[in-house]
Every structure is written in C-alpha cells, then in structure tokens.
Computed example of a mutant assay.
Amino acid sequence: MSRLSKRSTLAAALAGAFMFAGSAAFAADPLVSSQDVEKNINDAAAASQAKIDKLSDQTRDLIGEYRSTVAENDNLKIYNDHIAKLIESQQAEMGRYNKQINNITKTQQGVVPLMYKMIDTLEKFVALDIPFEKEERTQRVQKLKDMMEDSAVSTSEKYRRILEAYQIEVEYGSKSSAYQGVLPVDGKQLSVDFVHVGRVAFLAMSLDQKNAWFWNKETKAWEKVGDEYITSIREAVKLARGQAAPNLMKLPIEAPESAE
C-alpha cells in the first residue's frame, strides 16, 4: 500500500475515534443533568419541610400563648369584677362613716357648750355650798376647766370626767368625812379637826377638843357652840374617821326653813 493510502486510512480511523468519543460524551450528559435535578428537588423539598416544621412549632407556640392569654384575661376579668365589688362596698361603708362623722360633729357642737355650762354651774354650786373640803373641790373644778382646752382629751372623756365630778358632789350629801385644817378665830389661825355630816352640818373642833364651832349657812360664818355639843362633835369626828360605831348625836343643826 502506498504511503498516501496509509495516511488516509489513519486519518479516517482517528476521525472515527473522535466521533465515537463525542457521541459517548453526548450520551452521558442527560444522565448527569437528571441526577442534579433530582438532588436539587430533594434539597428544596427538605428545606421546605424544615420551614414547614418551623412554622408548625411557631404556630403551636402562638396557640399556647393565645390560650394562656385568654385564660389570664378571664382571670383578670374575674379579679377586676371582684375588686370592683370591693370598691363599691368600701364606698358604701365610707358613706356610712361620713354620715356618722357628720352626726358626731353635730353632736359635739351641742355637747361642748353644754359641758361648759355644766362646769360653770358646778363652780357656782361649790362657791355657794357649805365650804367643806373647799380647796379640793375648787381644784377639781379648775382641772375640768383646764381639761376643756386640752386637745389630747377626747370629747367623750371630757364629758365623763364632768359627770364624775357631779357624782362626787352628790355623794358628799350622803357621807361624812373628817380632816385637819386651819380655822380663822379672832384673827388667829387655829388648827382644828373639820367634820361634815352630809350637807346637814359642817363642824370644827380644836385639837385639844375643848372648843367647837359650826358653820352658819345663813350668816356664812363660823359660830362657837356651847359645851353641850362638845361630846357629840367629838363622836362625829371619830365616826367620820371610822373610829366609832354609828350612834345618836346631838349636833347644832339649823332648823329647816318653812316653805311659803
């Protein structure tokens, strides 16, 4: 075979080989593309499923929060209704208290002037009464007057103390008491035993028990009594001090005035 013919044959063979190789490569490309597409689809599906799962979890969380919010809202509504009823009850109670305070204020406006009048009356009574235990009784009235200006003492307590002072004055009329004091006699201050028998008689006896006097309510002065009364007045002093048993006594007592 000629050299030219050999070259032609070799060229033909190489061309055939190249064509076969190109055909094989062309035939393999569709398979590779199909696998890539399937992989992409699977990846997309997985990503979508992940998003769906995430949205599902978020939805469950939102539903839980919603239910919790609804339950809390119901509880708050019940609590608010309860508070509203309490406030309504308290407002009604405050209204009653305000009414009571107004009534108390009105009562005080009437009671306070009355208390001042009672103290003035008591002061005049002590001044005009038989002067037994005069200093103690006068001081008691003065304390009542000072008390009225003391804001630390309630109105009810002031009224109670005034009534107590009146009660003490009432009891003086049904009991006897004896105490030592000074009696002005002939320009001298004589130590004596004073004794009052209720408001019937107010007497004085010298400490040596030799002289005695009685308070004359008409003249509002002390008058000396005769010796016939000394023993009885001595017994009256002992009786008032609890040193003798009750007994009949002859005392200088003024006859009651006849009613006209």
Rank of each mutant, 00 (worst) to 15 (best):
F26G: 15
A11G: 07
K117F: 12
K220Y: 05
A24C: 13
T121K: 13
V185I: 13
Q90C: 00
R3Y: 12
E65A: 12
I41L: 13
Q100N: 08
V111Y: 01
P113C: 02
V126D: 10
D61C: 00
K238V: 04
Q100H: 01
V32Y: 05
E149I: 01
K117V: 02
V182F: 02
A27Y: 14
V197E: 06
T107S: 08
P131W: 12
A50Y: 11
F132V: 01
E228R: 03
S68A: 09
E164N: 05
K210P: 06
K54M: 11
A12V: 05
D227V: 10
M205S: 07
A221D: 11
E254S: 05
S154Y: 04
I83H: 04
K51Y: 11
V112G: 00
L14W: 02
M94C: 02
S5L: 08
A28W: 15
D186M: 00
S156W: 07
K117C: 04
N103Q: 09
I52V: 15
E135R: 07
E157F: 07
M115I: 15
H82K: 03
E133K: 04
K77C: 00
V70H: 03
L248T: 13
A17Y: 10
E72Q: 14
D29G: 06
L76T: 13
Q142G: 01
L31P: 09
D120K: 09
A46W: 15
S33Y: 03
A15V: 14
M148Y: 03
A221Q: 08
R199F: 09
G16Q: 11
A71C: 13
D36V: 00
Q100K: 01
L248D: 14
D208V: 05
Q109N: 12
L55K: 14
D186H: 00
L31S: 07
G242P: 09
R96K: 14
G22V: 14
V111M: 08
K85G: 01
S206G: 11
D36T: 00
A152V: 07
E72Y: 12
F26E: 09
K117S: 05
S89W: 04
G198F: 06
K6S: 12
E65G: 11
F18G: 07
E136F: 09
